[in-house]
Computed example of a mutant assay.
Amino acid sequence: MSGGQELAIRPGISIGEDELEEQFIRSSGPGGQNVNKVATAVQLRFDAANSPSLDERMRERAIKLAGQRATKDGVIVIEANRFRTQELNRADARERLIELLARASEPPPKPRKKTRPSKGAVERRLKAKAGRSGIKKMRGRVTQE
């Protein structure tokens, strides 16, 4: 890997190529004899916990969003084996990492404030229900005298 390039996450946020570690592994699934010979799947590792490119809040959110893809040490591991070539799988893994880090850089949603219906709204609702109930009760069988 070349040392000077960076992976842009969003404007003002990027990570260095030297922070990424790639390993090519054999892919599972169909592919005939070729699948046993060629290591086309990519395992991309990014040490989010020790990354100088991320601030503390983004670091924590990235590890939380990664879920099972993050190790106990805070290393995010992304495996890509969707395609049959190393180049496409490598690009796919990087794209998924960028997507994850972009989501981590967004501010967390505001917590929902609990609200209660007003007394008048509750009374109107109950009155409407009682009216509807009365209408339905009137729909009984017609008795003949």
Rank of each mutant, 00 (worst) to 15 (best):
E21I: 13
E21C: 12
E22G: 11
E22N: 11
Q23W: 03
F24L: 15
F24A: 15
F24E: 13
F24Y: 15
F24D: 10
I25D: 11
R26V: 12
R26L: 15
R26N: 14
R26F: 15
S27P: 05
S27W: 02
S27G: 15
S27C: 09
S27L: 05
S28D: 08
S28M: 10
G29Y: 10
G29H: 10
G29D: 11
G29L: 09
P30V: 10
P30G: 11
P30Q: 10
P30F: 07
P30Y: 09
G31V: 08
G31C: 09
G31I: 08
G32C: 12
Q33K: 15
Q33W: 06
Q33T: 11
Q33A: 15
Q33M: 12
Q33G: 14
N34E: 13
N34P: 05
V35F: 05
N36H: 12
N36W: 03
N36R: 09
K37S: 11
K37C: 11
V38P: 07
V38F: 02
V38Q: 07
V38S: 09
A39E: 14
A39G: 08
A39I: 02
A39F: 01
T40C: 10
T40K: 08
T40M: 06
A41F: 02
A41E: 04
A41I: 05
V42H: 06
V42D: 08
V42P: 09
V42T: 11
Q43C: 14
Q43D: 08
Q43Y: 00
Q43H: 08
L44F: 06
L44D: 09
L44V: 04
R45E: 10
R45D: 07
F46V: 04
F46Q: 03
D47Q: 04
D47A: 12
A48G: 07
A48N: 02
A48M: 03
A49Q: 10
A49S: 11
S51A: 09
S51V: 04
S51R: 01
S51L: 02
P52S: 06
P52W: 01
L54R: 04
L54Y: 03
L54W: 02
L54C: 09
D55Y: 02
R57Q: 14
R57F: 08
R57I: 10
M58C: 14
R59T: 15
R59Q: 13
E60T: 12
E60S: 12
E60Y: 00
R61V: 02
R61M: 12
R61H: 10
A62D: 05
A62N: 06
A62M: 03
I63W: 02
I63A: 06
K64D: 14
K64C: 06
K64R: 11
K64E: 15
L65I: 03
A66K: 02
A66Y: 01
G67T: 00
G67M: 01
G67E: 08
G67H: 00
G67F: 00
G67Q: 06
R69C: 07
R69G: 10
A70N: 07
A70K: 01
A70P: 04
K72W: 00
K72C: 00
D73T: 10
G74S: 04
V75E: 04
V75W: 00
I76C: 06
I76W: 04
I76N: 06
I76R: 03
I76E: 04
V77R: 04
V77A: 04
I78N: 04
E79N: 09
E79L: 05
A80C: 03
A80E: 05
N81G: 13
N81Y: 00
N81H: 09
R82N: 07
R82D: 11
F83T: 00
